[in-house]
Amino acid sequence: MASILIVAEHANGALNPATAKCVDCARGIDGADIHVLVLADSPDAIAAEAAALEGVGKVLTVADAAFAAPLAAALAPQVVATASGYDYVFGPSTTFGKDLMPRVAALLGVNQLSDVMEVVDARTFKRPIYAGNAITTVRVRDGYTVVATVRAASYKAVGSQDAAPIESAEAAGGTPAHTRFVSVQTGDSDRPDLQTAARVISGGRALGSADNFEIIYDLADSVGAAVGASRAAVDAGYVPNELQVGQTGKIIAPELYVAIGISGAIQHLTGIKDAGTIVAINKDEDAPIFEVADIGLVGDLFKVIPEIKSALG
């Protein structure tokens, strides 16, 4: 039986939805026995959430004040200690997983499979390269621990089940003192989360200023959507970095994605390819965004957005 250890991502005492998507990916491996590892200062509530994810056989916890912040240098030795005997170690392809999992892989003496988007069979996986412009099929040699990050946008969150058992795992100890958490500055939490929202409305450079970007927030609020942005809009300082969608930002898969004033650089398109319906509004009829849009409208966003608002009443 294939044993799979998934490293849970969490913040403020709650499980990150990307963990449920890692479970979905792991379930693609035949006969998978899926365990979730929760490393936190107080893991109980997070572990209870993980135990209720459909397909999870067991949850392992280690409580340690050193795990209060997600520092890779602190977490990696513990993941490596717990991972002993597992055939697979998965983490989400979020900034948390991208930071931690390669450190884990190196300590295990293996390469990491980054951004798994499809499980072909127990040893064969698909992953994107060149900003998603090519998809490779990679076979991992037998007897080699598969350390992977899971591209959350390729998977659905699993449903719920009766709680799986929760056990304490042996603490590895020896957390290094060389890395210290200072602070985290997060954005507006009143709006839906960009990574999990069913609807996302994004703005680009054409907005022209941070002040003008307010009409994107306003439209998003009127339909209960999360707000995203192109790299150009973030670089120009219209919105904070956590709103960036694309190759080096967030890869998302909402049911509805509305790109407003975004030309559609290849690096942006790679972040939205899995969206259900893509709507593009741009005044340049030759903008590449129209090549991937399901519905396109050529027009001035400063005229179109108020029209949409009034049509929605």
Partner: peptide
């Protein structure tokens, strides 16, 4: 340990409507 057996172009989204 990793053997790439195939490189493929990404699935294309079909052209939508204007």
């Amino acid at each position: 340990a990793f053997e790439v057996s195939e490189y493929a172009p990404p699935p294309q989204r079909s052209k939508g409507v204007m």
